[in-house]
């Protein structure tokens, strides 16, 4: 009972805020609705017993991704009204694509059945929290996958820097080592000037 109420509450708010993301006039509101959607998705994950995934959604998506989105929409010099003006003509094609996907999902779920092996994927050992269960295999059995994800993150880091880092020329900055090591003899020249002759 309680479980059902909680599920439908999260699910409805999730779908509602997802719709609001694409219909809101103000892009900042869109992002705020997106954050609401993430929170509700996290709630659904908690209901499934996947607390770790719920926490990941909150710290990664809400904490970092949504903040970056907010950053971008608030600071980009783009007129969103202009962007939006041409969007209506894509509605028919969007409806078609969305309709096809929805139709497919309906077909999938109407004919769905799990294989016998599906029992294997269910956690039998309730004494473990799912964070522990993940930890037990992620760093050992899935060692290879874990290191590959490290490389993916590294490439993401390189990509971000390659594509966005710009060195401005002519910026004055402190170079402590050089400043401390500067000697008067290197930078000052003393000329004896006899009056009337100039330097």
């Amino acid at each position: 009972m309680l479980y059902g109420i909680a599920f439908y509450l999260f699910a409805m708010v999730l779908v509602g805020s997802a719709i609001a993301v694409i219909t809101a006039k103000n892009p900042v509101h869109s992002v705020l609705f997106l954050i609401l959607a993430f929170f509700n998705a996290a709630g659904l994950m908690v209901l499934l017993g996947a607390e770790f995934i719920a926490m990941l959604l909150v710290i990664v998506y809400v904490g970092a991704v949504a903040v970056l989105f907010l950053f971008v929409v608030m600071m980009m010099d783009v007129s969103f009204a202009d962007l939006r003006s041409g969007a209506m003509k894509y509605v028919p094609i969007g409806v078609v694509v969305g309709g096809v996907l929805l139709f497919e999902l309906v077909i999938i779920y109407s004919g769905w059945k799990f294989s016998d092996a599906m029992e294997l994927a269910n956690p039998n050992d309730i004494s473990l929290t799912n964070t522990e269960a993940l930890g037990h295999i992620l760093y050992t059995k899935y060692f290879f996958i874990f290191q590959m994800s490290g490389l993916v993150l590294l490439v993401a880091m390189i990509g971000a820097i390659v594509l966005t880092l710009r060195k401005r020329s002519g910026v004055k900055r402190q170079k402590i080592y050089e400043q401390v090591n500067r000697k008067a003899s290197d930078v000052i020249e003393i000329h004896k000037v006899t009056p009337g002759t100039g330097v």
Binding site: A64, V67, F71, A160, T164, L165
Partner: peptide, 8 residues
């Protein structure tokens, strides 16, 4: 560079 900090 503001975005770069956020991405990193």
């Amino acid at each position: 560079k503001f975005y770069l900090v956020a991405i990193l």
